[in-house]
Structure formats: structure tokens, C-alpha cells
Design a binder for these strands. Structure first.
Length: 111
DNA sequence: AACATGACAAGTT
DNA sequence: AAACTTGCCATGT
């Protein structure tokens, strides 16, 4: 049907699924890894559109400052709680040890 | 079909 | 350094 309207979402989802538990990454990092550095916004859309797929750990994606910008979109399980359960400390909507838990696909993943 | 908007980010001023 | 501008692409109206 829609056949190849957007592989983009799929690509994003694939990367997100690879984020290790207890780590996080950013929209921009994913976009950059996929070769479209300036399309970080679409990554956000991809996440939003993936809320029906439970296998996608959307809570592990935050913005470049470690702020949980997308928390409003989490209905059932709260983003804060999901991250907290993985050992990530959050204060005031922001990840405290962001640098330490940051996972950059461009560095950690091979092409 | 045209126009606005958004879970963003980098570049310019 | 903080504020403003621009790029990007899928969706909603």
C-alpha cells in the first residue's frame, strides 16, 4: 500500500531499538547517524508515530540537552518512570548524568 | 493544493 | 552569550 513512502520512520525505529537499556540518545544523534543531520524533527515525529509499537523504547530518546521534551506523549507509562527504572536520574525534566549515559549511534554502531 | 506546525539542532547575529 | 533564523520532512487543516 504505502509501500515506500517513508523508510525514514523505519530507519529511526531500527536505531532506537538498538539503544541499550540504561542509556539514552538524542534526536539529532539519530538523524546524524542516518545522514540527515538537520532532520532531527522528523525523528521526533517518527517516535510519536511509533507509540503503538511497544518494542520501541521511545523514552530513551531525548533532546540534545538531555531534556525530556516528549514526556507529554507518554500516556500509560510515564517517561520519567521508565527511565528511572533503568537507573537514569532525572531532575526537573532533565537527565542529570546525561554525558555518562549518552549513547551515540555514530560512535557505538558500525555501518 | 497551500500553508502551518512539530518529541530538534546548527548556524548567524 | 542569548536571541533569532533556517533546514528538514511528515502530518494536519
Amino acid at each position: 500500500q504505502e509501500l515506500k513512502k517513508s523508510n525514514f520512520f523505519e530507519d529511526v525505529h531500527d536505531v532506537v531499538k538498538l539503544i541499550p537499556k540504561g542509556r539514552v540518545t538524542s534526536y539529532g544523534a539519530i538523524a546524524s547517524y542516518l545522514g540527515i543531520t538537520k532532520s532531527a524533527r522528523v525523528v521526533g515525529w517518527a517516535m510519536k508515530y511509533s507509540h503503538n509499537d511497544k518494542s520501541i523504547p521511545a523514552h530513551r530518546v531525548v533532546n540534545r540537552n538531555g531534556v525530556l521534551t516528549g514526556k507529554h506523549n507518554f500516556i500509560e507509562k510515564k517517561m520519567d518512570k521508565l527511565l528511572g527504572d533503568e537507573g537514569i536520574q532525572i531532575k526537573d525534566n532533565q537527565i542529570i548524568n546525561f554525558k555518562e549515559v549518552f549513547w551515540n549511534p555514530s560512535n557505538e554502531l558500525e555501518l
